[in-house]
Simulated assay, not measured.
Amino acid sequence: MVREQAGQVLAANLRALRDRGGLSLSELARRSGIAKGTLSQLESGSGNPTIDTVFSLSNALGVPVSDLLTAPADSEVVLVRAADLDVLSSNAVDLRMVRRLTLGDTVVEVYDQRVRPGQTQYSAGHPGREHVLVTSGSLRVGPAHAPHELGPGDYVCFPARAAHTYETVGGPVESVLLLEYPDGVHASHGD
C-alpha cells in the first residue's frame, strides 16, 4: 500500500512538472537519459524508480528530488513513521525521504540513508550541497577525488555538483543525509 501511494505521488508530480516545463515524454527522455517507456510507466504509477532514476529526473527537470516524491503537507504537525516511507535503492544505498523543508529560498531534504558494505555509490553530481551525519558504522564519503572517512557522530558537508562517492569501511552504515538546494533550483510546493 505504501509503495502504491508513493508511486501515485511520483506519477502526479512527474506529469505536473513535465507539463509545467512544456516537455514531451521524448524530450524528458532525452534530457534525463531514461527510456520513454520507463517514463510512461512512472507517469502511470506502475514504475519502480531507482535512486539514479529519481536524481536523473530531478536534474533534467531542474527541481529538488522532493518535488518528485513529496505530497503537499496538509497539517501543521508532521509525524513520519519509518514504516510509511518508501525506499529508493541503488547498488549500494537505500534512501528514505523523511521530510522536505523550505527555509526561505532554500529547500532542504532530510533522508534516512543506509549504505551496504562491499559496494560503492557513485554520483556524477547534481545541484546543491550534501550534508552527511553518520549514526553508526564507518563511511568514506565526499568528492570522488578526496573522500573523507567518517565514524559515528562525524559530519561532512560538500558541494554536490562534482562527482562524489559513498562507500562503507567495514560493515553497514546508517546515516542522515541532508540535500540542500540553492536559490534558483525551483521548488514546486512548500511546507
Rank of each mutant, 00 (worst) to 15 (best):
G33H: 03
V87T: 15
G153I: 09
Y181F: 09
S89M: 08
Q41G: 06
H145M: 01
V185Q: 05
I34E: 10
A12Q: 14
S89R: 13
A160W: 09
P64W: 08
V132C: 01
Y166G: 10
R116M: 12
S40W: 05
T106S: 05
T38D: 00
K36Y: 00
S75F: 00
S89C: 04
L88A: 11
V134N: 11
A6Y: 10
A162H: 09
P182E: 07
S90Y: 03
L95K: 10
H189C: 03
R161N: 08
A35T: 01
R161V: 12
G33M: 03
S89H: 04
P182A: 10
E43N: 07
T70G: 02
D191H: 14
S46N: 14
H164P: 06
D105E: 12
R31F: 03
P117N: 10
A92R: 03
S32G: 03
V87Q: 04
P49E: 08
T38Q: 05
E43W: 04
L103I: 11
R100A: 09
N13P: 08
L179H: 12
A82E: 13
A83G: 14
R31T: 05
A29E: 01
A71Y: 02
E167G: 09
M97R: 11
T70K: 08
L68S: 05
H131V: 14
D84R: 13
L57W: 03
D19M: 07
D154V: 02
S66P: 00
F55E: 15
P72C: 06
N13D: 07
T53Q: 09
E27R: 15
R18G: 06
H131L: 14
E43V: 05
P152T: 10
L95T: 09
E4G: 07
V93T: 15
P182Q: 07
A35N: 12
K36H: 05
G7P: 04
